[in-house]
Design a binder for these strands. Structure first.
Length: 519
RNA sequence: GCAGAAGUAGCUCAGCUGGCUAGAGCGUCAGCCUUCCAAGCUGAGGGUCGCGGGUUCGAAUCCCGUCUUCUGCUCCA
């Protein structure tokens, strides 16, 4: 049922020019999608809403646009190189996945346990006369086991150094390591899992350096923290925002645009005085959920999911989850990242990344609260919660994409009721007035009702129809997408009427008054 | 990666006991009609039946291989 909804969203998104499978004429590329003529407008509008609300409406937040390529040391400092570079192996029976090196190390640990046991036995037998070092050097059982360990370690080191994954698998088989879950020794080949996409910098193959496409935008902010703080003369607390693409080699990238290998993030890192992170964390949690709720996608569609198990760098973390067609899933993360990142960059770069606090009269590395939202996920949240099929009184149904008006790709469609009698010309005149403020669309083909329905499905919030009376009294009808109600208004009043309902400014004002209600 | 399902027109699908030039509905385009909620009329365009091979006089249909997509399993925004 909900799978059905996701399917409907996917096909609707394609049919109305929102999202196409990437490289479709070549059969597509797995989990990669292109945004179409309407998709790019919606996406841009989401970005504008986020950017305006974060950067323009908060005096203490500024934006940057850091490069996707970054110095390789960045990823050493952030932990991405070490944490996401593992040889993986699957057990075919239990379907469990393990790190190959961990499996071998666990095996070694078992042998070590035997030695420990042997030592305990020795201690019991010889009592106070027991010489542990001597025992370890002479006891034949210990020696045999230690030799085994040394041999395994040697082989493992060779295999890892030569990066020969086949040897690693051979070693696992040779040791007879079984899956702890299924107990079977039915293993797949060992595969290297690299979270980061690598490429080469430098046009000649030799002498070029391996660099990575960033797996998150946050590090671009951290490495620029001091630049922004100094040149912007920023005082703590302040934030740096950024919208940009990031790349991750997901093991499994699926569920439409929910999890892609190439995706876009909207992140803000807020730098604060150590010790104040609790209050700021709460503040940003509230601010962000409020941002979401101002869009009216349904209050019930959101929930917080607080992390109990925290990453090594975080001292608090929560997800804002959204009720996607696949269920509640993470849409945005709010994390209290402590000073982990800046400290790591201090160590790796050798540069001081401290802030002198005149009030405290001392320097410190700021703590950081991060808000990080997936732009593509936001897109999916909006699309999936906006797509409705309505049963009408006459028994027919209509498909309507109830996008938040301020985010809709096309704001107004203008129709001449018929194709002659000067109505098309009048309609064009109206568009020529409105086009400077709003994305407009002209349509004269097909019966008027059909044109309305087409715009409903495309998500256009308003349709204006020029009829014969329009020529005499300069009035038109304006139809609301959601209520299907029509109103007769003066052409001159159109910019004001439409502006109130569809402009980003009016949405931001609404957001601001909601935000004022938060302490 | 493993397991399962599916690939025929832009979309949804029929055709699959092998046999005329591969069809329908919707959509698209052109013309007629001139009408305020998808449904009037006329016509047009659009398909190497995912790809490759085999069996056969003959393959969308049977066999083999292959590719792609979708769904589940772990991590994340």
């Amino acid at each position: 049922m909900s799978d059905d909804l996701l399917k409907k969203v996917i096909s609707h998104a394609k049919e109305y020019g929102y999202i196409f499978p990437s490289s479709e004429i070549y059969d597509g590329l797995s989990a990669t999608y292109d945004y179409g003529q309407n998709g790019v407008e919606l996406k841009n509008n989401i970005k504008k809403y986020w950017w305006s609300s974060m950067v323009n409406m908060h005096e203490d937040i500024v934006g940057i646009d850091a490069a996707i390529f970054m110095h390789p040391k960045t990823w050493k400092a952030s932990g991405h190189v070490d944490a996401f570079n593992d040889p993986l192996i699957d057990n075919k029976d239990s379907k469990k996945r393990y790190r190959a090196d961990v499996l071998i190390e666990d095996h070694i640990a078992k042998i070590e346990a035997k030695i420990t046991k042997e030592v305990a036995k020795g201690l019991k037998r010889f009592g106070d006369d027991f010489n542990k070092e001597e025992f370890l050097k002479t006891n034949p059982n210990v020696l045999r086991n230690q030799a085994k360990i040394d041999e395994i370690n040697d082989k493992m080191r060779d295999a890892f150094n030569s990066e020969d994954l086949g040897n690693i698998k051979a070693l696992i088989e040779e040791l007879g390591i079984a899956c702890p879950v299924s107990g079977s020794k039915n293993w797949t080949d060992v595969r290297q899992f690299n979270l980061m996409f690598s490429t080469e910098m430098g046009s000649v193959a030799e002498g070029s350096n391996t660099i990575y496409l960033r797996p998150e935008t946050a590090q671009g902010i951290f490495v620029n923290y001091l630049n922004v703080q100094k040149t912007g003369r920023k005082k703590i607390p302040f934030g740096i925002a950024q919208i940009g693409k990031a790349f991750r080699n997901e093991i499994i990238a699926r569920q439409f645009i929910f999890r892609m290998r190439e995706f876009e993030q909207m992140e803000m890192q807020f730098f604060i005085k150590p010790g104040t992170q609790k209050e700021w964390f709460e503040k940003w949690k509230e601010t962000r959920i409020n941002w979401h709720k101002a869009l009216n996608l349904g209050e019930d569609n959101y929930r917080f999911h607080d992390h109990l198990k925290l990453a090594h760098y975080a001292d608090a973390a929560t997800d804002i989850e959204f009720n996607f067609p696949m269920g509640f899933k993470e849409l945005e993360g709010v994390h209290s990242r402590t000073d982990f990142d800046l400290k790591a960059h201090e160590e790796h770069s050798g540069k001081k990344l401290q802030y002198f606090d005149p009030q405290e009269n001392k320097s410190y590395v700021p703590y950081v609260i991060e808000t990080s939202i997936g732009l593509d996920r936001m897109f999916l949240a909006i699309m999936s919660s906006s797509l409705k099929e309505e049963a009408l009184e006459d028994g027919s149904t209509r498909t309507v994409l109830k996008l938040p008006a301020a985010l809709a790709p096309t704001k107004v469609a203008v129709f001449p009721l018929t194709k002659k009698d000067g109505l098309p010309e009048k309609a064009r005149e109206i568009i020529n007035e409105l086009k400077f403020d709003f994305n407009c669309l002209y349509e004269e083909k097909d019966a008027i009702g059909k044109r309305y329905r087409r715009q409903d499905a495309a998500g256009t919030p308003f349709c204006i129809t020029v009829d014969h009376d329009s020529l005499n009294d300069n009035t038109v009808t304006i139809r609301d997408r959601d209520t299907m109600q029509q109103e007769r208004v003066l052409i001159n009043d159109l910019p004001k009427i439409i502006g109130e309902k569809v402009s980003l400014a009016s949405l931001l004002k609404k957001l601001e008054s909601r935000e004022a209600a938060i302490v």
